[in-house]
Design a protein around this nucleic acid. Structure first.
Length: 800
DNA sequence: CTGTTTACGTTCTAGACAGCATGTC
DNA sequence: CTAGAACGTAAACAG
């Protein structure tokens, strides 16, 4: 189909596409147009990655906007939100306004109501609906990217429920769903009352194959000699072979450690193939990588990149990831060893893809479980860069002759699994039922079931009994925890329930937080008489934690004599532990040796924790308690200015993991603050301080300084060392002292002074004061007892 | 005696959304 | 119902 013949699109679009070199639509795109995407028709497109999904989305959204509407593009990842934003911003020249909204980023200027196209994550859209964003009703078109993720047990239900809500709010809403090729695209189409484009067509050829011995067996039956030399591993042989053809390789492995190890080894394979010019450019990138963070991970990555190899996983910080992705796209880095981050994330195509590991550890499966066909196909789909490579090749690695056949059967010739809704599970329904009632989508049990009948789950099951049972369980749970009230068959969210829904918390997290804070107030009053060995039975009365009702709490709050609880005495560690044991926080893994270490830690600091420690005989709960303690200790270290390198080593995490934990803690502590005032608990001040400390990664005395824009944990500490202890002092500080404290960086000093509100921030003619020491390592380690103790523990335990 | 290879036992395991109000080194 | 790569340490071995 010629782009000039597109019905319903804005006048400028055909010319725009011509300028981009697009004359003809790809076959699946043409099918989509025939199915009416540009004329407001619903559509499900199940097609391979890189076969022109984005243009289908654009056709739908632009034509809808041209009719005076407003479009929403839903993505599963924040990183994809910014990628799509960049894509769509090229339409701004035609007067369209693009906006982005994710948890950590919101388009500046102009509220989203003024935007023509909004890009957001599914959770953010859900949150916007819960918070009654007025513009939601103006939507005329919603495009969902990667809908096959409704199959995901954790996040799929959100997508499913959110789509159902959007469609109920606006019955005329055009729904376009883009999916990877899946086994049951027609089921999605049925659910969404949509036309279907289901195609395997790709703009460039993809050859799948299996490597074994000295040969690469391809799916068309041909064989290609690909010999493994001396001690070389199969992967190295493939990388070398690709290199000889001047191509790059993406290698998928099943763990971070494997990714790092493989990158280190493959660096030796790549090194001899680099030109001097490449070596120079790579050295520069390696330096940039070292500048991102001063950790072992960072050093290892830099070493590999200097040789043209890299690894990529979620332990890397954002900066690392972007540097690696860009260098790979620029063809400087020749091989990237990655965990699935790269399969689902931003677009990083490659001549060849190697899927080295096809099994991955899965605790719930009791060992290594095979990857799904869909996941392997997603990885393989990264092979072949449109317009750059003549074809793509995706290779599985077999270690025996039998495995060759197995891999062909299992992955090369196999169809992807059908997508199945995971909605009828308690954790998912807990949060979505509360939200559905709180935002008025249902007012009764029957209304709820009627709403849920619009979901994919309902369209996929004949057994409505299962759903009803879980719904009833969840209603009971929500009622007992005072999130919902049921009166005369009418469902209503309590004030607490509304707050929880708006905060986007799992109700179970909210219950844990409220119980923990409440417990602390009770505990403080008790401990005036019984402060003693923390290892004895806890002083707190036994609270059946998950099921303490908030009405009980309310009684305690106004009824019993006000305790002399001093909420300021809640330790930061206690609060970090409280939010870390919540289902909204990913737990750190307990390694061997950790168990003893944190049992000891628990013994020493149990009285700082909020709520009773579970019995050691409750295996699961006790384990969770300990690993929450490990997470809490990490957060405490961060908020005590322990440096990144020490934290990554001490907890066996990467720099990106610290960021992730800190971000989550920040969010949950913010929510805890709201909850505390909601149920009239007096802890808000302590929570707020713990949150700000973890946000900036500073001790108490730096909280004020670190709040100044341009001042983080390091600069705040330096200023403090130089005798400037708060923002007010900074405002009137001796400029030479500030300059010295900031190590003579004039521009930085000027910025900082300006942001602090200094009358005359100019550093012209100012010389750094000679008597100001800026040696961080001596100064920052004014350890608290806890920190010092932790350090000792660390070394002594480590020696065993 | 010392450096290198081999054998065997132990260890450990992917990813990442969200409030609110503005900005790290 | 289900694993396997990486690494540390000890043993074997070569020079």
């Amino acid at each position: 189909m010629d782009v000039a013949d597109l019905p319903g699109v804005p006048d400028w679009l055909p010319d725009h596409l011509h300028d981009d070199g697009i004359e003809e639509l790809y076959p699946p795109q043409a099918e989509a147009v025939e199915a009416g995407v540009t004329e407001g028709e619903n559509l499900v497109a199940s097609i391979p990655t890189a076969s022109g999904k984005t243009l289908i989305a654009e056709l739908a959204m632009l034509s809808s906007v041209a009719r005076g509407g407003k479009a929403l593009y839903i993505v599963p990842l924040r990183a994809l939100a910014s990628e799509k934003q960049a894509d769509f911003e090229e339409f701004e020249q035609y007067g369209l306004d693009i906006g982005v909204s994710t948890g950590n980023y919101e388009s500046e200027g102009g509220w989203l109501a003024d935007k023509d196209i909004v890009v957001a994550t599914s959770e953010k859209v859900d949150s916007l609906v819960r918070n009654d964003a007025p513009w939601i009703e103006d939507l005329t078109c919603v495009v969902t990217d990667e809908v096959h993720l409704v199959d995901d047990g954790e996040r799929g239900p959100t997508l499913e429920v959110t789509l159902a809500k959007l469609r109920r709010l606006n019955p005329d809403l055009q729904t376009v769903a883009l999916s990877a090729t899946i086994g049951n695209a027609e089921a999605l189409a049925t659910w969404l009352d949509a036309g279907l484009v289901d195609s395997d067509w790709r703009p460039i050829d993809l050859q799948k194959g299996v490597h074994y011995g000295q040969a690469l067996h391809l799916e068309d039956g041909s064989q290609q000699r690909l010999s493994v030399q001396n001690n070389e591993k199969q992967t190295a042989a493939i990388v070398r072979d690709t290199l000889e053809d001047d191509g790059s390789t993406l290698v998928f492995v099943n763990s971070r450690r494997n990714a790092e190890a493989a990158a280190g080894r493959l660096a030796n394979t790549v090194r001899p193939h680099l030109t001097d010019e490449e070596r120079g450019q790579l050295a520069d990138i390696a330096e940039e990588i070292r500048d991102v963070s001063d950790t072992e991970t960072s050093d290892d990555l830099a070493d590999a990149v200097a040789d043209g190899a890299a690894f990529h996983h979620a332990g890397l910080s954002r900066g690392h990831r972007e540097l690696v992705e860009d260098a790979f796209r620029d063809r400087l880095v020749k091989v990237v060893c990655a965990t699935p981050t790269l399969a689902a994330g931003v677009n990083t195509p490659s001549r060849r893809v190697v899927v080295r590991d096809w099994r991955r550890y899965d605790g719930s499966a009791g060992g290594m479980a095979p990857l799904s066909v869909l996941e392997v196909h997603q990885m393989m789909g990264r092979a072949g860069r449109p317009g750059l490579d003549p074809y793509g090749e995706a290779v599985l690695i077999a270690s025996s002759h039998d495995e060759v056949d197995e891999l062909f059967e299992r992955y090369v010739w196999a169809d992807p699994e059908p997508v199945r809704s995971k909605l009828a599970a308690e954790p998912a329904l807990r949060t979505h039922i509360l939200a559905t009632v709180a935002s008025g989508f249902a007012r009764s049990r029957e209304g709820l079931l009627e709403f849920l009948a619009q979901t994919l789950y309902a369209s996929q099951t004949d057994d409505s009994g299962q759903l009803e049972r879980v719904v009833d369980d969840v209603l009971t749970y929500l009622q007992r925890n005072d999130f919902l009230e049921i009166e005369g068959g009418e469902l209503d969210a309590t004030s607490l329930g509304h707050t929880v829904s708006r905060l986007y918390l799992d109700p179970m997290s909210a219950a844990e937080i409220v119980d923990g804070l409440r417990d602390w107030e009770r505990g403080v009053s008790d401990s005036t008489s019984a402060s003693g060995s923390p290892a004895d039975t806890p002083a707190e009365p036994p609270a059946d934690s998950g099921f303490t009702t908030a009405s009980e709490l309310a009684e305690d709050a106004d009824g019993s004599d006000d305790t002399n609880a001093d909420p300021d005495d809640i330790s930061a560690l206690g609060l970090y532990h409280l939010v870390s044991r919540t289902p909204d926080m990913y737990q750190l893994y307990l390694r061997s040796g950790d168990r003893e270490e944190y049992e000891m830690e628990l013994f020493e600091r149990e009285d700082e924790l909020l709520g009773p420690t579970p019995s050691e005989f409750e295996e699961g709960r006790f384990e969770d308690w300990l690993s929450a303690l490990k997470t809490a200790r990490l957060l405490e270290d961060w908020a005590t200015e322990v440096d990144e390198a020490t934290i990554t080593e001490r907890y066996g995490v990467g720099p990106g993991d610290i960021r992730g934990k800190v971000e989550t803690a920040q969010w949950l502590l913010g929510a805890a603050e709201s909850l505390a005032s909601e149920v009239d608990l007096d802890a808000a001040r302590a929570i707020s301080e713990a949150r700000i400390r973890v946000e900036h990664g500073v001790r108490e005395e730096l909280v004020d300084l670190a709040g100044v824009r341009g001042v983080g944990r390091k600069r705040a500490r330096r200023l403090f060392q130089a005798g400037i202890t708060d923002r007010a002092e900074l405002r009137d500080a001796d400029k030479s002292v500030v300059l010295a404290a900031l190590r003579g960086r004039r521009k930085t000093a000027e910025n900082v002074l300006e942001n602090a509100g200094h009358r005359d921030p100019s550093m012209d003619g100012v010389e750094p004061a000679a008597d100001v020491s800026v040696d961080l390592d001596d100064g920052a380690d004014t350890d608290t007892d806890a920190e010092a103790a932790a350090n000792e523990d660390q070394s002594s335990l480590g020696d065993f």
